[in-house]
Design a protein around this nucleic acid. Structure first.
Lengths: 190, 190
DNA sequence: GATCAATAGTTGACATGACAATGATTGTTG
DNA sequence: CAACAATCATTGTCATGTCAACTATTGATC
């Protein structure tokens, strides 16, 4: 086994110039996503807001004045609950959101976007939409439509049966980390 | 695939419709990349290795027995130098790599993959290649080729003039971090 | 040959993300 | 109603990424 192993090692040290089309496609997606993420992060940086925080703000704006429980935000972002708590901590410290414990169920904490948060979003929406990241001049719309379909089929191929969670135009969502299951099935609340 | 597409559209339109095909395309890319990242992370998890560490190992394997200076690894991963140092710290602690100071230029530290690191990689290559993530059954190869080209044009549109570095089959590469050139001045070597 | 700038790498401080465990509250069941 | 389980949110701890500052070494300049 040692002989075979070292042979394998020697072989490996030279190999890996051109993998499969599949691998190249995966690399392309990852590389492009990174580029997009970086570009958006750069756009948001002047406002001292991260992509995750921006997403939370957009979700809360969508939720309206009623606000949203912490875990409900987590569901929409597919992000773990602890992350949301700390995200909200920092955003509350910056005055973008406010939190209030629910009176009916004192376990629940509602988060609401503040006027300042709304102003921040309002000032960011346009620059984002106008940037090269979201305008994508140079790529025809028909091509983009094609790509959207292709990416959908890629997702389907990777993880069949996983419906895309609702995200109201959220820019970058987190990953479910481990075997992603939709935990949004049991949401009753009153 | 039409099902997935219309589902995505339907879900999003109910809360807030996509303002543009461009934005939908960007979201699709981000969502797909996240799915891929999660899937790969799950594949690597049993080996207790992260994607970044896996990338470093592959880069070092490609570098051969000569090894590679720390910053050279950072260049290939487009990752900041401090991150590489600490990444190598943990990987050295696990016995996957070894480091040695260069005798000619004592500022330089060469990192080399160890036999254990090579064995780890060898055991990981096949599961990765066999997984749904990199096999992408269900998507025709011609479609993948199309998508690769489309993604390339998207990258071009976002960040013109930045030719993607080759990266020897690295699975997930980091982003150029902050503002496309903030720290690139340090990154000038030949 | 001493001084100074550039380079390679490291460390410190901080933000973030993940998993596990815990606290507080509510609902359920005997 | 008392004990228990479930739920929501939080905190603890660790891994990681980033920026800024630092050390050690090299090369260049006078």
């Amino acid at each position: 086994m040692n002989a075979a192993l070292s042979q394998l090692q020697a072989e490996i040290q030279q190999s890996s110039p051109f993998p499969s089309v599949q691998e190249e496609a995966v690399l392309s997606i990852l590389r492009t996503a990174d580029l997009i993420r970086t570009a958006i992060a750069n756009l948001l940086a002047p406002a001292a807001i991260t992509m995750q925080q921006y997403n939370v703000l957009r979700i809360l704006r969508g939720a309206g004045s009623a606000g949203l429980p912490t875990l409900a935000i987590g569901d929409r972002m597919i992000e773990s609950a602890p992350g949301i708590t700390r995200l909200l901590d920092r955003m509350e410290a910056k005055g973008w959101v406010s939190r209030e414990r629910c009176k009916l169920d004192r376990r629940v904490v509602y988060a609401r976007i503040s006027g300042e948060g709304l102003r921040l979003l309002a000032g960011l929406d346009e620059p984002l939409r106008a940037s090269t990241v979201l305008s994508l001049t140079g790529v025809e719309e028909s091509a983009l439509g094609q790509m959207i379909q292709l990416l959908a089929s890629v997702r389907q191929s990777i993880h069949p049966g996983a419906a895309a969670p609702t995200c109201e135009g959220v820019i970058g969502e987190a990953s479910p980390t481990k075997s992603n299951q939709t935990s949004s099935s049991r949401r009753k609340h009153s």
